[in-house]
Amino acid sequence: MVAWVVQSTGEIQKLVIKEEISVALQTLNFEFQAETPETMTKEWSHLGVTGSGDLEVLMEKKNLGGKVQAKVVTPVKGFDEVWRRMLGKFVNDCQVGDVSIEINDDNATPIVVYMRLRQAWAESSEKEAE
């Protein structure tokens, strides 16, 4: 990142910070393949709010050769494996394919993640709302 620092002399100095600041958000990327995948009916669907203990999910239909791509942006560290398993469980339970999933998370527990994914999936497959 780039920061501008005002010196005591009044001079403005450009500061380039190369290292990622440790508090920064994390981005995790995953890929999954279900056995008999089916894709969604709508082009895209969105559900949820990035509230404390919650998350938002954006699903988009995308030609991925039957695979599912997932991107998670979260402030929580050390849960990469939990995310991998939870998303994998969802893809497997619902046999999801050719979908890109993007999640903005704020400390959601695994069950909240799973429930939101199931809700988003149900919505992405229902007939167009009035």
Binding site: A24, L58, E60, N104
Partner: peptide
């Protein structure tokens, strides 16, 4: 879908919303 998220929050470790 336009993903106009805040450019300031990620460096502060705060979750963003699309």
């Amino acid at each position: 879908r336009d993903r106009f998220t805040s450019p300031h929050l990620p460096v502060l470790g705060t979750a963003v919303e699309f």
